[in-house]
Design a protein around this nucleic acid. Structure first.
Lengths: 188, 188
DNA sequence: ACCGTACTGGACCATCGGTCCACTTGTCGA
DNA sequence: TCGACAAGTGGACCGATGGTCCAGTACGGT
């Protein structure tokens, strides 16, 4: 990709922002691509031209949201960034993730539900990063455990229906505490 | 409901068995109601007449699978039934659930993905039972924790994509161990 | 100013869950 | 045994949705 035309860039931002806005007000499965296009003031073809598919849109949006978090984790100050103990970093990271999810209630669920019948082989990069980070932190403190699996189990909660309902009721703090309980229990 | 005609009963069993069979070979979202009808040798109208909706079918199937487990938990011998310590019962129950899920790979996922746009207010009875049981066992041993939330988090893993892939590769034992680790960690 | 190319939009398509209804078949009282 | 009625059946049909297509538009380098 050499360059992006200014109108294309404008439409891209409009689509992302419209998706974000719709997703904050409705459940992910209720948000149709046509709605997104209408809300962004473009045609449906444009949406698909830029993002390829519903899943592509969700991935792009999630990526935008999670980019800042990634920087903080890799080069930012403790406790999120390097420097603190794995335990502190894990708790801080879980809080940060809950915060991102809480402000974009249905996003992860929307991602989780797109299952990619044929293509889209690998996982979305955001999930890969989150999973990898959590997994590393667990392994650093408890090398005897199956860290990758435990990381999957911790993240699984964020995609589950009952938890989503919790978030819709605004009980993010409760979820955060629950995840902290789990994480602390794992690390012993 | 006073009685069920014999042909209706036969078709009902045929539909359930066909669904089961399709679900064991394909991912849940790839199994259409038309396929189910064709595989059962009936018309689509019949399927909907008996089960109301895709979700109704899944619930009925799941209920059939989980009924035995419920009896074992409520009146069976320890460690699943009453008599053992909450800790032992929880570990045994998690193993039993993993076993059920493992032999019906996509079922819970299929249930989790039907989100009921408008109606279907409450949760499926099977989930309610599983969640209630786990929640009680946690609360019995650790009244200081948020047992209902932790139960949701434990069960969430069974609906998540990465875990499903694990099961498709046959690593049920690994999942079982991971859940045991989590449960043991929670109980302290 | 011009031209090629990327971008645009909305008509169009295939598929899926679900509805409808004319027809068939079990069941039960007489 | 038989008739009638309710329960059951099946497949044409519907509306919605994700995704495709392509003729037209407009940006941006020259």
């Amino acid at each position: 990709m050499v360059k992006e035309r200014v109108d294309a860039a404008r439409n891209r931002r409009a689509i992302l922002r419209a998706t974000e806005e719709l997703l904050s007000r409705h459940r992910p499965e209720e948000v149709t691509m046509e709605q997104v296009a209408a809300a962004a003031g473009v045609g449906k073809g444009t949406v698909f031209h830029r993002f390829g598919s519903r899943m592509g849109l969700m991935i792009a949006l999630m990526q935008e949201r999670a980019l800042g978090l990634r920087d903080e984790v890799e080069t930012g100050p403790p406790p999120l960034g390097p420097g603190a103990s794995p335990r502190e970093r894990l708790l801080a990271f879980l809080s940060a993730v809950v915060d991102v999810i809480g402000r974009n209630k249905g996003l992860l669920a929307a991602l989780g539900q797109e299952v990619a019948p044929r293509a889209h082989g690998g996982d979305h990069p955001v999930y890969t990063f989150w999973h990898g980070h959590i997994s590393e932190l667990i392994a650093a403190e408890r090398p005897d455990l199956d860290a990758p699996l435990l990381a999957d189990l911790l993240l699984a909660g964020l995609q589950a229906e009952p938890i989503l309902r919790l978030l819709e009721r605004g009980e993010t703090v409760r979820l955060e505490k629950g995840l902290h309980t789990l994480a602390a229990a794992i690390l012993g």
